[in-house]
Amino acid sequence: MDGGLTTVTRERMLSGGSDGLRLQEPRSRLRADVPDDRAIAYRVSLREVFDGLRALIGQVSGLLILAQARRGRDLRDMPTIAVARERWREAVETLGRLDPPADRAADRERLRLAADHIDAVLARIDRMRGGLTDPDIMDAARHLTAAYRLLQSICDHSIGLAMVDLRDACCCCGRTLGFEGAGT
């Protein structure tokens, strides 16, 4: 048994149908096609960190725009700042547990650097008094841009690591990749 499925049933599902001939595919090939448990756990955690940091970049960027638009308003009063800090903590905790395969070890370091850049911006917002100045905002934008580029460097659309999330848009129509139609 394997997760409640018999080996035959599991292979039937993996082969995509009930065609008896497909069940004759070499087991080694099937196993090569299917990630092992460690790889799956890694991808799930990686996605969690990636999505969290990506959302933080957008969230904090938006706050900086609003800070510029609403001169003098203290960003520390905005409830989303507390949420951002909490999300950052969660992402870093998950990052600490990340156990990448050897060929993906660089991912973890890039994510760590991205998290550091975001932390620098959040810390600056925490320290500010009387609103952010333009140089403050530009410096924050540089950190966020660096974080964005780091995330971009590990994008892998085959496992949903993408800077634009279109997975659940109407345009996606329940499909992930290789379909026609894009969000508008």
């Binding site: 970049i57 957008g58 960027s61 510029q68 333009d134 924050a140 934008a141 659940d168 996606c172």
Partner: peptide
Amino acid sequence: SGIDPGDILRGVELAC
């Protein structure tokens, strides 16, 4: 869906 944080980020520079 359909939002790129990078677009918002580029908006920061525009704002400044």
